[in-house]
Design a protein around this nucleic acid. Structure first.
Lengths: 219, 219
DNA sequence: AAAAACCTGACAATAAACTGAAAGCCCCCG
DNA sequence: CGGGGGCTTTCAGTTTATTGTCAGGTTTTT
């Protein structure tokens, strides 16, 4: 595996790098965000270890940037023990895991192993849904080579259907999927988004089951 | 999402269950490993929250068993702060994540959200009724690959017959199935719906038993 | 042949869903 | 810190599908 370590503390960085090297992985170690940013332009890494507290800015921004670009390289963030909000923010920004400093090296190893295992199995599954080609990891859809751009909500809705192909999903189920944390919705938002999704990608796949919900035919 | 919570501590379990429910997920809460084992046989969960310290054994074993069976349902393990080795062992046994007790509820939420991003759908039993293929969960009927769309009432009626294959069902029984208790019906509604059902899917399966009711032959 | 039971096409009322447009929100940029 | 653009949410008017009922016809039973 090829890892990128973004860590400004000299001592800690060295320890981590040595540990990872000992396990047979390649490590690039950069000490600030601008270098990290640059490194990411050039090379494909299998895993990124990202310290959130860096002298020249907030690692969260880099993480967001990575995810927004559609890159799904696993990211493990490193945070101080008392930065709970950072951890949550980090996970929500798309981090795959975190480690709290100071951490045990064997724990780091286990995390790296776990994350890499998660991703090694299916490198880039492309699902066919009707005439659509869907790359779930990259959040990318195309039909006959033509890209179809969805907004975040549109994608979330689409994803719900993808994850339950052929199932009838009720509006409240879809709401749960779109608004993860109990947020209530008091309008016909789902209908509106179904309408938009259809306009963008329907060739009859998204059907209404009156009184029950919606279903996407996957064949 | 459908979650399985394996946790013996009554207080903590309750808090977790409530939190998850509030977020719109379905939770099954079991308090020991044998129940957990049994639950897993029966149902497909989207995510499992597993306390490693249980009265009747080590959760790691359950986790290993799950993974050895080829099941990839995401598992988040719950451990005490000082059980570092457990955490590592858990991750290596195939856990997707862990939470250290005591943990913040918002952290739990973030973790669930992170893990649930990668959960996927599950297969469904398909019943054969004559020449019809019926997927009860998906509310979907087809004959020779051709979808047959039923309205809510039509489906409800069909369901009644499915649930009592070969039985003669009287009109009043069918009414009870279609309409809430007490709701009286003062016309030949059932006859009408039987007629509609036949038009949509009958190849002689739905037969009239004069004076008694209707019966669906399932073979 | 009359009565009983059942079948089915048509219809109006109702309930559900669709969709264009406006308002609100949020993030980014200067 | 204010403005702009894109995304999200709400609203409201319209369209569509379903439903329960009836009426007249058909079949079965006696």
């Amino acid at each position: 595996m090829r890892l990128l370590l973004v860590e400004d503390a000299a001592g800690l960085g060295e320890v981590i790098r040595d540990q990872i090297s000992d396990e047979g992985h390649a490590v690039d170690w950069v000490k600030n965000l601008s270098y990290a940013d640059a490194s990411l332009q050039v090379t494909q890494y299998d895993l990124i270890l990202l310290d959130l507290m860096l002298p020249d800015g907030n690692g969260i921004d880099l993480l967001k940037k990575i995810r927004e670009s559609g890159d799904t390289t696993p990211v493990i963030i490193l945070t101080a023990r008392d930065q709970l909000s950072d951890r949550i923010e980090g996970l929500n920004a798309g981090a795959d895991d975190y480690l709290v400093k100071p951490f045990d090296l064997s724990e780091l190893s286990a995390r790296i192993a776990a994350v890499s295992r998660r991703y090694s199995g299916n490198p880039n599954p492309i699902i066919k849904v009707g005439t659509l080609d869907v790359d779930l990891n990259k959040h990318f859809i195309s039909r006959e080579g033509v890209a179809i751009n969805l907004t975040a909500r549109e994608w979330a809705l689409f994803e719900a259907f993808i994850q339950h192909p052929g199932n009838v999903l009720s509006k409240s189920q879809l709401e749960d999927h779109l608004y993860a944390f109990g947020a209530e919705i008091e309008s016909n938002t789902i209908e509106v988004y179904v309408s938009r999704l259809r306009k963008k990608l329907d060739k009859g796949q998204l059907e209404t089951v009156r009184g029950l919900g919606y279903r996407m035919r996957s064949s």
